[in-house]
Amino acid sequence: MRSTDATLLIVPGWQGSDADHWQSRWERALSSARRVEQADWERPDRVDWPRRLAAAVAAADKPVVVVAHSLGVPTLLHAAPLLPPGKVKGAFLVAPPDLDAPGLPAVLAPFAPVPTAPLPFPSVLIASRTDPYCAFDRAEGFALDWGSALVDAGDAGHIGSASGFGPWPEGSMRLLGFLQSLK
């Protein structure tokens, strides 16, 4: 599959993705990319965010590949039961938060616990060994639970613009490889 064969739904996490974030750059660079907009990026809503994602999937005129970062990952997991069967062809998951870890902002608590059901479509999980929001061994467990291929990003922080991942060419290459693996 090529990027133009699918609608790439960009699903940012809490506070959205700023203009320098790799998700925002990909959205601008890829003609088939669309951001799932939320009513309030500062106060995530456990019911509304997944519903908005499900509505975006239903409205897409092509097969969908979800590109989720941070709280966007549990948003997809909570949305999975709401998605039209067969419409999502894959998910590119980056830096999911461990919502059971102590010290996370209270505004994220309604998304806990992180769902552990296997995803009904292929997925890849990119995780950092130095993500302050999720220990690598926890990300390994998520990948196993969800049936995701795990990619070790090494010392990459939260894999966002704050940790130096604006353009993220390695991520672009991973996404293209993932897309090529999809039917």
Rank of each mutant, 00 (worst) to 15 (best):
P169I: 02
P63C: 08
A117N: 10
D98P: 03
P50K: 05
H158K: 02
W14H: 08
A109N: 12
D45E: 08
L144D: 15
G103F: 02
L104E: 10
R129N: 02
P63G: 11
R2I: 06
G171H: 01
P167C: 11
F121C: 01
A127M: 04
W14G: 00
A101T: 05
S181E: 13
S161Q: 12
A33G: 02
D137I: 08
P169L: 05
E27A: 10
V57N: 04
R25L: 14
M1R: 10
L144M: 14
A109T: 12
R138P: 05
D145W: 08
P169Y: 02
V65M: 03
T4Q: 15
R129C: 07
P84T: 05
T7H: 08
I159W: 07
R51E: 15
V66H: 00
W49H: 04
F136H: 13
G72E: 00
A153V: 06
G164T: 01
A117D: 14
S24I: 01
S161C: 13
V94F: 07
S161D: 05
Q38M: 07
L125V: 00
P105R: 04
A79F: 11
A149N: 09
C134P: 02
W22N: 02
K183C: 11
D48V: 14
P63E: 08
G147T: 06
R28G: 14
V11K: 08
D145Y: 11
G86Q: 06
D18T: 00
F142Q: 06
S17K: 01
A55T: 05
A117R: 14
L144Q: 15
A54D: 02
P97Y: 08
L77V: 05
D98K: 01
